Computed example of a mutant assay.
Amino acid sequence: MSASLRPSKKALSIARTLHVYVSMALLLLMLFFAFTGITLNHPDWFGASTANSHTESVALPDFLLPIAAEDQHWQEAAAHWMASQWQGQRQQVEVSIDELVLIQKGPGRYRTVLLDTEMAQVQVESLDYGLVAVLNDLHKGRNSGGIWSLVIDASAILMLLFSLTGAFLLLPQSRRLKRSLGYMGGVTAACVAIYWLSIPG
C-alpha cells in the first residue's frame, strides 16, 4: 500500500479503541443473535414450534349484567373492562353486537379474549410457545414493541462499526489484508453459488 493511502497512527488508534469497546458492548448481543440464528433455522430442535395451550372461562362482572349488546355505553364499558382485566389497551378490543374480541400478541405468546354476548361469558385462550420462541421473536423484532426495535437498530449500527473498524485496522498489514480479502471473496462467492444453485426461485 502506498504511503498516501496508509492511514495515520491517530486514525488507527481511534479505530482500535472503537473496535475494542464496541466489541465488548456487543459481546452478549452478538452471542444472542448468533444463538437465535440457529434456533430460528431449526425451531423443531428446541420445541419452539409447539405451543402449550390453556383455555379458561371468566364470568362477567356484575356491572356488565344484564348484557345490552346494542347499547354503545355498555359496549364501551365492556371493552374498557376487557382491556383493564388483561392489561391491554381499549383500541385493541374489536366490538360488535355479537362479540367483543381482544387479541394480544407478544414474543412467543398469543392470547385471544372473546366476550360472547349471546352466551354471556368470556373465553380466554392462551398459547405459549416457550422460552426459545420468545428469543426467536426478539431476534426478528416480532410483537416486541418500539423500544426493542430501537435495540435492534442500535445493535445493527454497532455491528457495522465493529466490522468496518476491524477492516480499517487491516489496511497497514498488506499480507493479512490480501489474505482477508481472499477469504471474504471466497465466502461471498460460495454464498452466491448456494443462492443460485440451491435456493428455489
Rank of each mutant, 00 (worst) to 15 (best):
P200Q: 12
L114T: 13
L135E: 02
T165N: 05
V187N: 04
V93K: 00
L161V: 14
A59Q: 11
L131K: 09
I97S: 13
W196E: 04
M24E: 08
A156R: 14
L170M: 06
L100E: 01
Q104T: 14
H73W: 06
V132F: 12
K140S: 05
G185E: 03
A154I: 15
Y110T: 05
F46R: 01
M159K: 02
G146T: 13
Y110S: 06
F168H: 05
A79Y: 00
M30H: 04
S84Q: 14
H19C: 04
D137H: 05
D98L: 08
P200G: 08
S8V: 07
R175N: 11
G146E: 13
A79V: 02
I14Q: 00
N41M: 09
D62P: 00
T117W: 03
D44P: 00
A48W: 10
L181T: 09
L27H: 03
S163D: 04
F35Q: 01
R6P: 03
A189P: 11
A78M: 05
A59L: 07
T165G: 04
S198P: 00
L26H: 10
A156Y: 12
A48M: 07
L40H: 11
F35G: 07
L135I: 08
N41V: 04
V122F: 05
T55H: 05
S8P: 01
L31R: 11
D137K: 01
G186L: 14
P172N: 05
A78H: 01
H73G: 07
N136L: 04
R111K: 13
Q72A: 11
R176K: 12
L26C: 13
A79W: 00
V22D: 00
S180P: 02
E56D: 12
P172D: 06
A25I: 05
I97D: 15
T188G: 15
A68F: 15
A167T: 02
L102P: 00
N52M: 06
S53V: 15
G182S: 13
N41R: 11
G201D: 10
G37R: 14
L60Q: 11
A51I: 06
S4C: 07
E70F: 08
A167N: 02
H54F: 04
N143H: 06
I157S: 10
Q92E: 13
W45M: 10
G141M: 06
L164M: 15
F162L: 15
E56P: 04
S96A: 08
R16T: 07
